[in-house]
């Protein structure tokens, strides 16, 4: 077993622990909603991009069953989206919100660059990064608005 597999196994151990530590118990439903919807988005985007030949992952789990990197799309990116959502400055002005979006997209792109440089989990080129920048911006936007919509009733329950 080589380095790449160790990295993936490390993700599967470390990320759930981080999520467990970071998510406040009062917001666990929002966090789960964000995680689930982002999984759907990454699934859809990764299938579309791989189908178009724009995404490629040499080392992955379920090697026979899929050419998508399951660890990234199922665990890593959705977890970043959860953090993005939990830290979102709800009442801040437009610029502050924009910076928040850019910061978390930057986090995702940095992870991609690191993985592309030091492991074989992803092939990362400049055009991948440019596309991913816009893809993740859109995905984070959809994710946040979905969670706001779906948890609306909890808010009204709490107020009343």
């Amino acid at each position: 077993m080589n380095f790449d597999y160790y990295v993936m196994i490390l993700f599967w151990i470390v990320i759930p622990i981080i999520l467990w530590k970071v998510i406040p118990r009062s917001r666990i439903r929002e966090a789960i909603a964000a995680l689930l919807v982002f999984q759907m988005l990454t699934w859809l985007f990764s299938i579309g991009l791989t189908y178009a030949g724009l995404l490629y992952s040499p080392i992955r789990f379920f090697e026979e069953a899929t050419t998508i990197n399951f660890t990234m799309e199922y665990l890593l990116f959705p977890s970043v989206a959860v953090l993005f959502y939990l830290k979102f400055p709800q009442n801040a002005n437009f610029t502050r919100r924009m910076v928040h979006y850019l910061f978390w997209v930057g986090v995702i792109l940095s992870i991609m660059i690191l993985l592309g440089t030091f492991t074989n989990l992803m092939v990362v080129r400049l055009d991948h990064l440019i596309r991913s920048f816009f893809n993740f911006l859109i995905e984070l936007w959809i994710c946040r608005h979905y969670v706001l919509w779906v948890t609306e009733q909890f808010e009204t329950k709490r107020v009343s």
């Binding site: 689930l36 759907m40 699934w43 379920f62 026979e64 069953a65 399951f70 199922y74």
Partner: peptide, 14 residues
């Protein structure tokens, strides 16, 4: 349910 089937679906095929 997607979250479940994505994982289990891949597992059964793999």
């Amino acid at each position: 349910q997607q979250c479940t089937t994505w994982f289990l679906g891949l597992l059964t095929v793999e």
